[in-house]
């Protein structure tokens, strides 16, 4: 249908203005800010590429790359579990099995709880003296494995990663289930008539036909890996202890921009520069993702 321009504007502008003002413009303005030094009040000082130099090569680089590797570690572990493990659970949940609907609900439950609250719940379970995890290990005779999971450098990051996966994996399972249920039933029937074993059906039918889903999810996992903040905040605090062993880009950014005890220095410009580096890694993929969805919705 067609209509007057004034009508179009009436319908389009409200959403467009909000979205532009609080999503798009802040991203653009972050790029601008990254060339300044600014404490938030008073005059901004133009410093050119100084912030980036400082982050990539200067005295801030150690902190930055430490956190960057941790974010990448998040991405790798999330990919393995949230794609690998989730795939197999989804295969199980889409086969004819007793209690399917119930398990489907259970699987998604942690996802509706606020990440920061999930972190607090787990900090209780991981308490070195009386937490569930260590008590359980003692109960089954593995007491020598009990340890301060979040209190030592060697285990802290992986523990945080696991809590994150515990909460998020349900989303990936559900998406895989939807993809598997979308596969035409005839394919399965034909394969069974030809005498195919289940393992073959998984490797030759289910897996190849869920690869596009996996690709989309991998993009999302990548983007979201750089967005991580709440779980670290709740489990090991803004300082991402012990000794920054759980620091991720989200927490570095938070300390730089909004302070918190012991931050090396508080500066909006420096914080914006960190964000710009993340954006450069992530925005191209966001665009790829939008295009994929747009094409799919037009049936291409």
């Amino acid at each position: 249908m067609k209509t007057k321009v004034s009508h179009i504007l009436l319908f389009v502008l409200p959403a467009l203005i909000f979205y532009t003002l609080f999503v798009v413009y802040p991203i653009g303005y972050s790029f601008n800010l990254s060339f300044f030094s600014w404490a938030g009040v008073g005059e901004k000082t133009f410093v050119g590429f100084e912030n980036f130099k400082n982050i990539l090569f200067g005295n801030f680089s150690e902190e930055f790359f430490n956190a960057l590797w941790h974010s990448i570690y998040f991405f790798i572990m999330n990919s393995i579990f949230e794609l690998g493990l989730a795939f197999f659970i989804a295969v199980a949940l889409t086969s004819k099995i007793w209690g399917r609907r119930f398990f489907q609900t259970v699987v998604y439950l942690p996802n509706v709880i606020s990440m920061v609250l999930v972190g607090f719940i787990w900090s209780m379970l991981l308490n070195p003296q009386w937490g569930l995890i260590n008590s359980f290990l003692e109960l089954i005779g593995l007491g020598n494995l009990a340890q301060p999971w979040l209190g030592q450098k060697e285990t802290a990051l992986t523990t945080v990663v696991m809590v994150n996966i515990w909460r998020n994996i349900g989303f990936y399972i559900l998406v895989f289930m939807a993809a598997i249920l979308n596969i035409p039933k005839d394919l399965f029937d034909a394969a069974y008539i030809d005498g195919a074993k289940n393992r073959k059906i998984i490797t030759r039918i289910i897996f190849p036909l869920t690869v596009p889903t996996m690709q989309t999810l991998a993009i999302l996992i990548f983007i979201w890996s750089f967005n991580i903040f709440d779980v670290v905040y709740a489990l090991t605090g803004v300082q991402a202890g012990p000794f920054r062993s759980t620091d991720v880009l989200g927490t570095v950014f938070y300390r730089t921009a909004f302070g918190g005890l012991g931050s090396s220095r508080q500066d909006y410009g420096l914080g914006a520069a960190i964000v710009v580096i993340i954006f450069i890694l992530v925005i191209p993929l966001s665009m790829v993702y939008a295009n994929v969805l747009d094409k799919r919705s037009r049936g291409l």
Binding site: M1, K2, T3, V5, I8, V12, A15, L16, Y19, F22, V23, V24, Y25, P26, I27, Y29, S30, L33, G40, I219, L220, I223, W224, F226, N227, F229, G250, F253, A257, Y268, G271, A272, V275, I278, F279, V282, I283, L285, S286, M287, Y289, A290, N291, L293, D294
Partner: peptide, 30 residues
């Protein structure tokens, strides 16, 4: 409706589906 920039506006909006918008919080705060 069919109008100019229709597709552009749509893709512009859904790019936000996967943007880490909260990282741009400094300008939001300002």
């Amino acid at each position: 409706y069919r109008f100019k920039f229709r597709r552009f506006i749509y893709v512009y909006i859904i790019t936000g589906l996967a943007l880490p918008a909260r990282l741009a919080v400094i300008p939001i705060y300002v």
